[in-house]
Amino acid sequence: MNKSTITKSAIVEKYRTEFPAKEAIFIDFGGCVIETRVNSSELLADLTNYFKEFLIDAENGDIMVTAHECPKTDLGLEYTVKQPDPGKTKIKEEFYNLPDGRVVYKRLTGMVFVFGNGDNIAIGPCIENSNQVINFINNRFIEYKLNKGSFLGHAAGVIENGRGIAMAGFSGMGKSTLALHLMSRGTTFVSNDRVMAEDNGDSLTMYGVAKQPRINPGTALNNPDLSCIVSPADKEKFMSMPKEELWELEHKYDALIDECYGQGKFILKAPLSGLVILNWQRDNSETIVKVVDPKERKDLLPAFMKGTGLFYLPDSPEKENDPGVDAYADLLSKTTLIEISGGVDFDKAADVCLKFMKEGKI
């Protein structure tokens, strides 16, 4: 493509013409339907299996995403490097802002994602990198909710007895592990890593993301409902490792909710009745649980706050800057904020969460 004439619309037209995406699925994200069209039956099968609990019959959606399996492509753009998040060193993404949208290039896989003003397109070796296509689809829903005024939270979520609870924590605190402990005790899953908190005036609603949990071997082996995803050979290897090394492994497993806990145990919308902040450490001290005021404990809120990142394009100038801690404090004053500190005790934390969801108090 001629660099001087590159626009988002031109890219979309070129790849939708050359690699027509004729097969479609419709994914219901708690009331927002994303129509996803692909040019590969193999990719369609991967996406259908991943999103199977949220598929509906429809003729069109609120948002359309097309994914085009094709060779790696060079759009001839001079990308800007996305600097790694704090604590990480590997550069994974580059981007280029077009007059009518944005291009994100995945350096490690060669995948290209183009979006803006209602057009959303994934280009490249999609089958080999279906996880990145899945993330792109989920990010379209996140963008949709943020542009309607929701706040982005870095949290897992479950619901029981009509009360939803989100779990956040500073790095490595175990929010997903706690969520899966609660799943083993009968709750329904809402989200693994991201929630969008919607202000309803005097209460909050959380929307989850259709992203299956990715867990480390320590989490899997310490939960009977999850141990089935680890092969016998891996079990033998991991069980012989020191506990500290086991929890630090980078190896991850996909824990599909329907396969581990049964069908109908994953929904994407729930009341945000409470938010738990895990602020504990791995020692033998007593686990402490208390309700706190978000306006007085703003030091806890960065554990929940999440920047919008490259895959979000605001629909108005006032949304270009992420909300600050004061805005999050105002928002979270409409729910119950629970701090769990002291020593790590997932069983006690699960007891607290279950009591709150059943009785509305800790």
Score class of each variant (00 low, 15 high):
D293T: 09
L354R: 14
Y261D: 01
K52I: 11
P125K: 04
M196K: 05
F29L: 08
L98Y: 05
K334N: 08
C260T: 03
G218P: 01
E128L: 10
V112A: 14
T308R: 15
M206D: 09
G110N: 06
A166G: 13
F170Y: 01
L310Y: 06
R102A: 12
A349Q: 12
T66E: 12
K175T: 05
Y15N: 11
V344D: 15
I229P: 05
L337S: 07
I267Q: 03
E359A: 10
F51E: 03
S341I: 13
T287L: 00
S150L: 05
L204V: 14
A255H: 03
K14C: 07
N2M: 08
A168W: 11
F51W: 08
F136K: 04
R214I: 01
E35F: 01
V158K: 13
Y15T: 11
V291H: 13
G157M: 01
L331C: 09
L43G: 02
T205W: 15
K90Q: 13
G208Y: 00
P99M: 15
E359C: 14
E296F: 00
R163M: 02
M1N: 14
E42N: 12
P71W: 11
L300H: 04
E259W: 05
I288S: 15
G76C: 07
G101Q: 04
M111N: 01
V33Q: 08
G343Y: 13
Y261I: 09
K355Q: 15
F151S: 04
E42R: 12
G153Y: 00
E236G: 01
T7P: 09
T66D: 09
G61E: 03
T48S: 09
I6N: 13
E78L: 10
